[in-house]
Design a protein around this nucleic acid. Structure first.
Lengths: 253, 253
DNA sequence: CGTTGATCTTGACTTGGGTCAATGCGGAGG
DNA sequence: CCTCCGCATTGACCCAAGTCAAGATCAACG
């Protein structure tokens, strides 16, 4: 389900494996070559964060990088006067942290309960030097994130409130269907990990506008709200239409 | 002046050098190791583009990647109804193209006259496999671009028109001062490569709003317009103040 | 040196979404 | 079961920025 993490075990016996990120002593990794894995396995550690807990703060030194194993993490930037913009959401298998830079450029906050599989940044960096495949994998993930972040710039700069919310819900619905490995049919139910306030920070809106757009889509029969945090997509075609995006496509996400 | 391109020659005689991107047969490169350079030098080619000319189109296959040698390139995304958002501006020494993906995710258009030093994407990709240092350099550049693009998300999602324009001018002024290697004093003159329309696409505004904000900053004595495309920064402190950014800092740019 | 066309500026008006202020609602804890 | 308390919704109002419509400016060109 959590497809394509930066590390993945592809062969070898199951014994001694880390059940969280799949790294195992003496295993062959799909991306990095064997010997480093032993080191890596020894170096890694887990850390859990409660909802709302800060994982890293913009402007402060970061000592670790890693992979989100469980839960949802928000990346955001806050202005002096308190205005805040979320610049990314991380899900299980996503890489978290900023290699090759001591100071974190953004705040990372746990949205739900979060478990991170961590390595010391320095160790990870030297491991990168030694293991080109690991580095290549990280490069590919970073390029994908860059594309996604630019896609989000279109949403922030040009889309209406309605289009913003519809786009967001469409992405979550695709994600939910993808994880469940189901075709994207009407009636999919999406669990919203975010509060209205967090959504407003992600979409560049206010909490009231987000709420109003939910009500509007509900009134039109595009979605149904089982509860405030549980949305059923009743009419995916009309949702996509409202999103302003080019038709169906499994986009970059 | 065009600091930190993906390739740079650091030693060896000047003969046989490519004066545009600094790659030379048998030279030692700061980022990638020697042997590949011979190949690289043989593979590279130059291409020029006129202002407004399309370098790559979103959704179409790309055959090349490369480095901007001269001029300014815009990356943008257009919605079906014509709304357009610029998602990046590329200057000399910036990497252009999308390795490891056949389809271009964004439009690349020449803003000024542009010269690009190009390599076949496939060749570049295999070169990456072989030359970890090259790959590392590309990774670092991509991480920096990701940070910058997230920074821009804050501008698009949360800043007022005034703050947007002030931020933009501050970035250009820093750039101009940096290239001229001068301290950032009041009175720096900034050449605007972009039309008002292009600025509005970059800032997520309309052309009229951009124009009005220019007039406003002029009225307040923060800037002076020598011509429509030539701005003098009269009061850098107040410009930064208007930008909503945290103080002076040489930010990520 | 006047015409043309693109670019830029300015004004008048409209509007989407922000602000402020109640009100509703549902789960945790007494 | 009632009472908080944090979240969510809804309404009334307002304003920043968008839209529409003239004009101004300026470089290119016949």
């Amino acid at each position: 389900m959590t497809a394509n993490p930066i590390f993945r075990v592809v062969e070898g016996p199951a014994s001694g494996r880390c059940e969280q990120c799949g790294i195992r002593k003496k295993a062959v990794c799909a991306y990095c070559s064997t010997p480093e894995l032993v080191l890596l396995d020894a170096m890694k550690s887990y850390k859990d964060f409660a909802p709302g807990e800060e994982i890293a703060a913009a402007g402060e030194e970061t000592t670790h990088v890693g992979t989100v194993v469980e839960g949802v993490v928000s990346l955001s930037k806050t202005m002096i006067d308190g205005r805040r913009q979320m610049v990314g959401l991380l899900f299980p298998s996503d890489f978290i942290g900023r290699p090759f830079r001591a100071i974190a450029p953004f705040d990372a906050v746990a949205v739900t309960h979060v478990r991170v599989c961590r390595f010391k940044r320095k160790s990870f960096e030297s491991l990168c030097e030694e293991s080109p495949n690991l580095e290549k994998r990280l490069l590919e993930m970073t390029l994908d994130e860059l594309d996604a972040s630019r896609e989000w710039m279109l949403l922030l700069g040009r889309k209406s409130a309605r289009e913003k919310l519809a786009s967001f819900l469409a992405i979550l619905a695709r994600r939910a269907a993808g994880l469940a490995d189901k075709p994207l049919a009407n009636g999919v139910t999406v669990e919203l990990a975010l509060t209205r306030e967090q959504m407003s920070e992600y979409l560049g809106l206010t909490i009231e506008t987000v709420s109003r757009q939910f009500s509007q889509l509900k009134r039109e029969g595009v979605i149904a709200l089982k509860s405030a945090r549980e949305v059923a997509i009743l009419d995916f075609a009309r949702l996509l239409d409202a999103s302003g995006d080019e038709s169906d496509g499994d986009a970059l996400y």
